[in-house]
């Protein structure tokens, strides 16, 4: 039972971790919680849904090219949506009080949920079957090919992100910007461009998480981002908000805690336990697992 729930938890955690990265990256750069990120996840899931349903028959089937295309559409679309939201709803408020962009983010979130509810559907919709799921058993633990697929994709995305932020010129500039906007500009770094790239990458990862979530649970709905969004945000806080490794670790940790609660206690308690973890972390280690003292930005 323990290992079975661990496998389920890691799958769930893969999705939370990808989702949490968008919260943490934006917070790292702007010290702002992007509450519209849960709707980027939802829109990503819908873009994947449309790509899966509408792509012509000749590209469908269990081919890598087909999946690459589906994920490319969902991730690009979600990334561009995130960039647009920043331009329209956050950038004009850059010099306002820190509360202003937060409220703007909540507004964008409600706007997008309602937009999808009205123009697409108020009902949940079944996610198209992607590939035939095969089941495997290792030492009594059931693992299916969809779980392996989700985990592999999430890990690849996280490794790529880690390489990007530690090895590339742009990634290094992104980490510099997270430390000090003014000094980064003095180095010739266009901080607005870095912010755009941050939203693009965070949004794309959120979109990827949305598609994987749709595939895993088999259905999507206009408000599907809300609860997973809160959990992903919790994961980011537990890991240490602003810290990329923290979001990854926090995501897996939350997925595993949730699965173990479902297995050993009751699924009715899973959200109670998860948010109790958030409260405990905030009380006893407000900086999270990998968090450092938050440096004041001027």
């Amino acid at each position: 039972m323990f290992f079975q729930q661990l496998v389920n938890g890691i799958t769930l955690g893969s999705i939370y971790a990808l989702f949490a990265l968008g919260y943490t990256m934006v917070y790292g750069i702007l010290l702002m919680i992007n509450f519209a990120h849960s709707e980027i996840f939802m829109v990503g899931a819908y873009l994947g849904f449309w790509a899966l349903s509408l792509l012509p028959v000749w590209v469908q089937g269990w081919t890598p090219g087909y999946f690459i295309l589906v994920f490319a559409i969902a991730m690009m679309g979600a990334g561009l949506l995130a960039v647009t939201i920043e331009r329209v709803a956050y950038r004009p408020l850059r010099r306002a009080s820190r509360l202003a962009p937060l409220i703007s983010a909540i507004g964008v979130s409600i706007f997008l949920q309602n937009l999808v509810q009205v123009t697409v559907s108020a009902q949940s919709q079944p996610y198209p079957d992607t590939f035939k799921i095969s089941h495997y058993e290792f030492f009594g633990v059931q693992v299916n090919s969809l779980q392996i697929f989700i985990f592999a994709l999430a890990i690849s995305a996280m490794v790529l992100l880690q390489v990007f932020i530690t090895k590339t010129r742009l990634g290094k500039a992104m980490r510099a910007t997270a430390q000090n906007h003014t000094v980064s500009q003095l180095m010739g770094i266009n901080v607005n461009f870095i912010i755009t790239v941050t939203f693009l990458i965070g949004g794309a990862l959120g979109g990827l998480a949305g598609v994987l979530n749709g595939m895993y649970y088999g259905s999507i709905k206009f408000n599907m981002g809300f609860f997973p969004g809160l959990k992903a945000f919790t994961a980011a806080v537990v890991g240490g908000i602003g810290n990329i490794k923290g979001a990854m670790v926090g995501g897996f940790l939350l997925g595993i805690i949730e699965a173990l609660t479902v297995g050993y206690i009751s699924s009715a308690y899973k959200d109670i336990i998860l948010f109790a973890v958030l409260i405990l972390v905030l009380i006893f280690r407000p900086t999270g697992i990998f968090g450092e003292e938050v440096t004041e930005k001027i």
Partner: peptide, 30 residues
Amino acid sequence: AWKIARKGIMQIPEGRKVFAKQSVLENLEL
């Protein structure tokens, strides 16, 4: 500011303001 830096005016800011969470080499690269 970033365009002025690219024109060839660099500033050594008050209080040094190195990128504390990055390596010495990365600071130079930046």
